[in-house]
Simulated scan of single mutants.
Amino acid sequence: MEIKRSKSGQAMPKEVIVVNKDAFLPIHKTEIRWLGSASIMINSRGTTLMIDPLLEGFDMPLLFEMPILPQAVPHLDAVLITHIDNDHFSRPTCKDLLSVCEAYHAPYYVAEVMKEENIKGTGHAIHDSFKVKDIQVTLTPARHNWQNGSSKYQFREWKEEDYCGYWLDTADGTIWLPGDSKLMEEHLKMPEPDVILFDFSDNDWHITLDGAVLLANTYPNADLICIHWGSVDAPDMSPFNGDPESLIDKVIHPERIRVLAPGEAFTLTKKQVKK
């Protein structure tokens, strides 16, 4: 696995690959790039989108420079946001992408908050579907309403539907991002995706390591692109401190664990069931 250790011992990527404008050009395949943290870029035959882009302005120190900054993005057909936390809804990033992004999508609550930044976001309910050109996008459920237990956030009731994952149907296969979430029963009853954008944070308001392994082994043919690890310099905070090596002896077909460098392209392919 292509990882190294920070000075404090955190697992982190060995390198960063700069994403240039060529990554946004029309192609005859679907490429997935992990950009660090929970940020994803997808180019599906020329349809380009980002999920939870955190490309600048985070309020905690990072372990590496982002592979692309907003001013270097030439065009996006959409930005998809899963929830309000600022490592997912990066207001600075979303604002600085306004001139090049055609549409913003999010759960209803996040879409309302986007108005505070003069971002015209389209809100959706869990299980709603919509199209980004030829990509079919469906919101999947998540359980991450941790704010209800914090006195700082008692200005509203935080509902499960304020948080989501995304299921993407492309011409080249299916991609599923469960999102920041406790493991839910519904997560174990999905069609088998070709790729899971895989949070394995050992944290009670995330999936936990045991939950991540159960999810991975429920879908034993899906490629697992590791996300939400090795990006934030926070060795004592479990949501940011996953170690891909902890998965190797627990996951069926461990060769499908994909530890990408930030900015590295992974080509989506439809799976044939392994015997």
Rank of each mutant, 00 (worst) to 15 (best):
A142S: 15
C164I: 03
Q154I: 03
E160H: 07
E157M: 08
V110S: 05
H83Q: 00
A106D: 10
S99N: 14
D77V: 00
A103T: 05
V132S: 05
P107C: 09
V79W: 03
V132P: 00
F89Q: 06
V132D: 02
T122S: 07
Q147D: 03
R91M: 08
P74W: 10
W167M: 01
I135Q: 01
K152Q: 12
E102I: 05
P107H: 08
H124R: 13
V113L: 09
M114Q: 09
S99H: 14
D77T: 01
G149A: 12
A72N: 15
T93V: 12
Q154P: 01
A111M: 01
A103F: 00
Y104F: 15
T140R: 06
K131P: 00
L139E: 07
T138H: 01
G121E: 06
N145I: 03
R143L: 12
A78W: 04
P141E: 10
G121V: 00
I119M: 08
P92G: 07
D134Y: 06
S90C: 11
G149E: 14
V110A: 11
D162M: 15
Y153F: 15
T93E: 09
E112Q: 11
E157G: 02
A125D: 11
T140W: 04
I126Q: 10
D134G: 04
Y166S: 00
Q147K: 06
V110I: 15
